[in-house]
Nucleic acid binder design. Structure first.
Lengths: 111, 111
DNA sequence: GCAATACTGAAGTGATCACTTAACTATTTT
DNA sequence: AAAATAGTTAAGTGATCACTTCAGTATTGC
């Protein structure tokens, strides 16, 4: 469920927009209603709802409606999945550099 | 240089495309030429070059040309910057949950 | 020198994106 | 019950995206 490439696709796509990242940033400081998410953004409430839908479809954000207020919160597991993908690639590269360093050191010993 | 929001924007936008992520994945296993990057992808070489330009503009990939071959490698520092942004948001949320847990435990002690 | 290789750049195209406005529903407040 | 609040939905628009093809430019092998 975490490393489904389609889900990963939706997550990175969701994070690609600055308005959506700002929404995630706001939600990292605690749950918020749709209007609260909209407040710092220079766009219509409607646009914010559309961004929210993208975030929810990606799994990065979850929300529930009580009365007329929808309360949103981030899903740390999903954030971690994106984080993990990047981390794996970076570590693969760094491990490679280490092995290369060892190899160079070894061949130098033999000279 | 690392937390420039414009640069972050370019990075997440670059990672949003599956073909580009596949290129990053390939490069995490070692440097590659443009043709080598193109080989597993079902698109023209020209399209791959365009994707490469996006990756380079974002700082995620660096390349240099020797003779007629351009050799590409990933820039782990840039990957780390994206990783860091996500990690910060996730940790902020988790710290918040911890404090909330402490608060609930404390108020329960008082009952 | 000539052909093959490895890209590079420009122009075009159809699809998707990030909005907008406007009309609507459901819930509270007064 | 009327008005204000909070969100939802649909349709439209202009901009950006992910390609394509085609016509180049250097390099390298024969």
């Amino acid at each position: 469920m975490l490393h489904d490439p389609a889900q990963l696709d939706l997550m990175f796509q969701a994070l690609a927009d600055p308005a959506r990242r700002q929404m995630v940033e706001r939600l990292s400081r605690g749950p918020a209603s749709v209007s609260q998410l909209a407040e710092p953004l220079a766009m219509s409430l409607s646009a914010v709802v559309q961004h929210l839908n993208v975030l929810e479809a990606s799994g990065l954000v979850r929300s529930e409606k009580l009365g007329r207020v929808r309360t949103c919160r981030i899903e740390p597991k999903a954030l971690q999945a994106a984080e993990h993908w990047i981390n794996e690639r970076r570590l693969a590269w760094e491990r490679r550099l280490d092995r290369l360093g060892d190899f160079l050191a070894d061949t130098e010993d033999e000279s």
